[in-house]
Simulated scan of single mutants.
Amino acid sequence: MQDMLLGFEKFKNISLSDPFFNSLKSDYGEFGDWFLKKGGHQAYTFRNAAGLLDGFLYLKPEDGPVLDSNPPLPSSRRLKIGTFKVNPHGTRLGERFIKRAFDVAVHEGVDALYVTIFAKHTALVELFYRYGFVQQAIKQTGNGRELVLERRLDRVFNDVVLDYPRIPVGAGRHFVLSLYPQWHSRLLPDSLLRTESSSILQDISHTNSIHKIYLAAMGGIEQLTRGDTLLIYRTADGGPAYYTSVATSLCVVEELTNVNNFATVERFLAYCAPYSIFSESELRSFYQSRRYPWVIRFTYNLAFHRRPNRKALVEQVGINPSIYWGFFQISTPQLKQILQLSGDYEKASSLVYSS
């Protein structure tokens, strides 16, 4: 089974002769020399079962203006996406790399991300546009004419996807959604517990994607609406829930729909399959039985550094221990307290905006 954790490797330990780099060498005459000069620098990588590269992402924080574009970009703290390439094979690996770029941008506290890219790479250009990148300039070199795309993190579109990974909290609608361990870590790969092996992850679309779909039947879910905050709670796994159930992640609802809204099983599969942990046979069964009528689509915005357990949620956050822990609402002060316990309050505060 393929390990889906991204690698973080020094350039000097990556073979420039890997066929993966052929297109980059073709696009950029200086690529080989540039690559060799980066020896001690590191890049995010994804390797296939044969050990060859299927993905490569190099990121570089920058301060100041971008002067080699027309027009120049004004002075700002940015994260430059220096090299971004994936071999497309239908698993949304590009979204996984985009998510990592956003994660690093938040960690570095930058105001924006930017990338230069040839327009001919249409799938990659469309991927950037989907997450709020906007063309700001042109870069002309001996290699040709590139688009300069920038995504500002200090501006708000008031849209769940265009604002990703920012989190709208203005409505004060925050809900806890519990997931069983066998579903949790396949769906949310950056939220693995330290005791879990990364071998449970696969190079498949629901693991890689920023977008997730989960089917449920718990009472109260029918009230969810676009922009609601979802705090993901991983249920107990072989130990007392008071100590081993933990809050792991913060997500945002894109859409709530019902299985009855799909006229045919084919339409249901087309909607769910790319982002759901459930197999096609399971989805077909769920469609026929209506066992899990609610279909939640959400974005995966923040994986917690520390995971507060139920003990902390009860004793420090003040959640009623006698409630049903499958799905329930919490207040904005409670959400903030959980973020403080997770060690991510400062990071999350930079992501929050009033919707």
Rank of each mutant, 00 (worst) to 15 (best):
T207H: 12
K120F: 05
Q223Y: 02
S185P: 00
Q223E: 09
L188R: 03
R130S: 12
L127G: 04
R194Y: 08
R155F: 05
V156W: 09
I200K: 14
Y164A: 07
T141V: 02
G170P: 04
S197H: 07
R234Y: 03
A119I: 03
K139D: 01
R152W: 11
A123D: 13
D228T: 05
R130W: 07
V161L: 14
Y233A: 02
F175L: 08
V161K: 12
K120D: 12
L153P: 07
A123T: 09
P168M: 07
I232S: 02
T122R: 15
I213G: 01
S191A: 15
G142L: 08
L188Y: 09
V148P: 09
L224P: 01
L153T: 10
V169T: 15
A236K: 13
L153M: 15
G142A: 08
H184V: 00
T207D: 04
Q135T: 11
T141K: 10
A137V: 06
I213C: 05
I213N: 08
L127Y: 11
R145D: 08
L187N: 01
L224E: 04
D203S: 11
D203M: 05
I213A: 02
S178I: 01
Y180R: 15
S191H: 07
A137H: 04
F175P: 06
R226E: 11
H121Y: 15
R151P: 00
R173H: 14
S178G: 08
L188H: 05
S185Q: 12
Q223S: 07
D203C: 08
Y129A: 10
K139V: 09
S185W: 07
Y131F: 15
M218C: 03
Y180G: 00
T207L: 02
R155M: 11
I204N: 06
L187P: 00
L193N: 13
R152S: 13
R226G: 00
Q140Y: 05
Q223T: 08
T207A: 10
L127I: 09
L215Y: 05
F133G: 07
